[in-house]
Design a binder for these strands. Structure first.
Length: 723
DNA sequence: ATAGGGTTAG
């Protein structure tokens, strides 16, 4: 029986669009869409959302434009605006928002929240923010606190941005805070952390003390603020006060708790986040995903793995987080397995999931498989995705095919600072320091703001190219021109650069001028410079500090004993060796390869007949390594040694060029197998080296590890399809 | 049907 005027078939077809989009079958969804005589607004909105989610704004906008004005509604505008916001196009988002209001459509909570999240990314955010503020105020008082919170958070974010003068903006934020119809725990937290981020602990504390209700979350924000500014005394006092006075967190609503979880893990307070999670009366997938992301971003990958197993349900996002987490922590194989498992369980990977899989190819140096994924991306229509393209650039660069990295970069529909960073890093990794700096200058000309990662890359590039003057210039410009204060990584690279050029006095001065205590990376950089310049006294100072700071790192023992040996302090060598044996430091294939390399260094600079050196020989023999010097370059003191010759195995270190030359000297026997140590930080680097070698040596090289072969011939690599 | 959870660069 059919009621007249109602067409069940059309209705079902419209709903089917949603089903196809949910299972990522966009091309089916679109085909079906084209066949429906009059697609309804829900079907249109679904498709707009789906295309925005995969970064295809062109198609999203096409469907939006084809929707007659009489049919459009607020939700449909919201979906399109969200598309722009999520794809970092704040201006387009605002433009459409204005159009929407001119067309007489009434923005709602979602509209304001999503426009605001787009606004935070643009340069004149301050002005836009004020206009939105007016719009919210004029529209009456009917908006949820979440909209006011979003507005507040944009003010605060702009205030901490180097682009605008912060003093007035924090004042504006405070005015907004005061005039909000209602304030919830999030409003208080945002305002207080805003003050803390702008280094105004007094204002933050005053606000906290003026609170009527005593909410634990807000107190916690203040405590973290104190801790972050090293005011541990105040932090502790406040903590004690909170135990007796504040209201606990656990009875907040689901969405507030979810926001809190995220807030906590993003400030590195993962265990607090987990505590809230454990005590939440109701949890949903968002809560689980937030904690999983917490474990992954903290690098606590074992915990992440077991948490993932425990999860009652999973979404594409869950899989994506886990896959990229594994890939980033050097577990490329597991990441690939999981990627396949995801597909076999019926999830069609989104572009982010592809990014994770591509990252694991980069880590494994699996170029052929990476190319296959690239092809799949194109056929699925994901090739316009920013994150996938950025991952591709890195993958091609790490696998040594700079050409392909470059062509991805050049054909991308839009690029961001990550793309630039990836390209600059690709050049720097290939030893083209000067070109890397050229590209960096181009980036500045294109008005893309450099970030802390950009400067890490640029300082390394200067260091590799020996460009001290430029390095000094960029190092000082990062604070002066871009408001980025150098962190330990930046200082370490700067010290590395200075030491490579023998500027030890300046390096020491820089260490003394640092606003924090020097840690491992600083001493390591100094030590490395001392080794190349034979500055033994300073080197030993650095090594001793390193030894105090990171006694758990096997390499440190060897470095220190190595240096003592070099200047003949054999008693000290013996002491370190004893400590090493007591701690049970073992030399297994899973250990850092650099350790063995450093041991060999002892033979070169020290007295090979000395009992301690003999002991090292014995130590290595115990582990089944029959060490033999094959030849080294006098200028770099690089040594290459083979493993037991009957196994015909050769070990690789990551020093590409040295390695290539050394292999050239060494005359590989036919059919030799090269063993790649799994713990090498970047196997891609190794692949570059071997490729180079296969060209220099003019012979095929096969690299084998537990699961696959890579075949190198005349500078190219092919690998078996194991997945 | 729209939000909250993710991705890529050292």
């Amino acid at each position: 029986m059919i009621v007249s005027g109602f067409k069940p078939r059309d209705h079902i077809l419209n709903r089917l669009i949603d089903v196809y989009c949910k299972s990522s079958n966009f091309s089916y969804a679109h085909q079906l869409f084209d066949q429906i005589p009059k697609p309804d607004i829900v079907a249109r909105t679904t498709l707009i959302t789906a295309y925005s989610a995969i970064g295809n704004l062109t198609l999203a906008r096409k469907i939006f434009n084809e929707t007659p004005l009489s049919m459009r509604d607020t939700v449909c505008y919201n979906a399109m605006i969200t598309g722009y916001s999520r794809n970092n196009d704040g201006y387009a988002s605002i433009r459409l928002f204005c159009e929407m209001r001119q067309g007489g459509f009434r923005p709602n909570d979602f509209t304001y929240t999503t426009v605001l999240s787009g606004v935070a990314q643009i340069v004149d955010a301050e002005k836009q923010c004020q206009q939105l503020h007016c719009a919210v105020v004029k529209s009456g008082t009917g908006f949820a606190t979440s909209v006011w919170n979003a507005l507040l958070s944009v003010y605060v974010r702009c205030a901490s941005s180097p682009l605008v003068s912060s003093s007035s903006l924090m004042g504006e934020a405070r005015n907004l805070f005061n005039e909000m119809p209602e304030r919830d725990e999030l409003s208080w937290t945002t305002m207080i952390t805003g003050y803390i981020r702008n280094e105004d602990l007094h204002a933050a504390r005053e606000l906290l003390d003026g609170m009527d209700e005593r909410m634990e979350v807000v107190w916690n924000a203040m405590i973290s603020g104190y801790a972050h500014h090293n005011s541990f005394q105040e932090a502790l006092l406040l903590f004690r006060k909170m135990r007796t006075e504040a209201k606990p967190t656990v009875d907040f609503s689901l969405s507030v708790n979810n926001t809190l979880l995220t807030l906590y893990y993003k400030c590195g307070k993962l265990d607090e986040a987990r505590y809230i999670f454990n005590n939440m009366p109701v949890k949903d997938l968002v809560s689980w995903n937030a904690i999983l992301s917490g474990y992954v971003s903290a690098g606590r990958i074992q915990e992440a793995k077991s948490f993932f197993k425990e999860m009652p349900e999973r979404s594409i996002l869950t899989w994506t987080v886990m896959i990229s987490g594994l890939a980033q922590n050097g577990l490329g194989e597991e990441a690939m397995t999981l990627f396949n498992q995801m597909r076999s369980e019926g999830f069609e990977p989104c572009d982010y999931a592809f990014s994770g899989a591509i990252t694991s190819c980069a880590a494994l140096g699996a170029l052929e498989h990476g190319r296959q994924l690239h092809a799949q991306l194109i056929s699925l229509g994901f090739d316009s995705s920013l994150s996938a393209a950025n991952a591709l650039i890195t993958m091609y660069a790490r696998c040594g095919v700079f050409k392909d990295a470059n062509s991805v970069f050049l054909t991308m529909p839009c690029i961001d600072s990550v793309s630039w960073n990836a390209m600059i890093a690709a050049l720097a990794q290939h030893g083209h320091g000067v070109q890397a700096i050229d590209l960096f200058e181009q980036m500045l000309k294109a008005d893309i703001l450099p970030d802390r990662i950009t400067f890490l890359i640029i300082l390394s590039a200067c260091s590799h190219a020996g460009l001290v003057k430029e390095g000094r210039h960029y190092f000082s410009s990062m604070r002066v021109c871009y408001g980025i204060s150098p962190d330990e990584g930046h200082y370490a690279r700067m010290i590395d650069l200075l030491c490579r050029c023998g500027e030890f006095t300046e390096a020491k001065g820089l260490i003394e001028s640092m606003p924090f205590e020097p840690g491992g990376p600083i001493w390591e950089a100094l030590l490395a410079g001392c080794r190349t310049h034979g500055n033994m006294d300073l080197g030993i100072q650095a090594a001793e500090r390193l030894f105090e700071l990171v006694p758990q790192h096997d390499g440190t023992y060897i470095l220190l004993s190595n240096l003592y040996a070099a200047i003949g302090r054999w008693d000290d060598v013996a002491k370190v060796r004893k400590l090493m044996r007591d701690r049970g430091v073992k030399k297994e294939p899973g250990c850092s390869w650099i350790d063995v390399e450093n041991m060999v260094h002892v033979f070169l600079v020290g007295d090979t007949e000395h009992p301690e050196v003999q002991a090292v020989y014995k130590y290595l023999e115990q582990l089944g390594l029959e060490m033999r010097k094959l030849g080294y370059l006098p200028d770099t003191k690089f040594v290459l040694h083979d493993m037991e010759s009957e196994h015909k195995e050769y070990s690789l270190s990551t020093h590409s060029e040295k390695l290539a030359v050394a292999f050239g000297l060494m005359k590989l026997p036919l059919g030799a197998t090269i063993r790649v140590f799994k713990n090498l930080r970047s196997c891609g680097d190794c692949h570059t080296a071997i490729k180079f070698m296969s060209r220099v040596v003019g012979r095929d090289i096969i690299v084998r590890d537990a699961k696959r072969f890579h075949h190198f011939r005349n500078g190219e690599c092919s690998c078996g399809n194991y997945w």
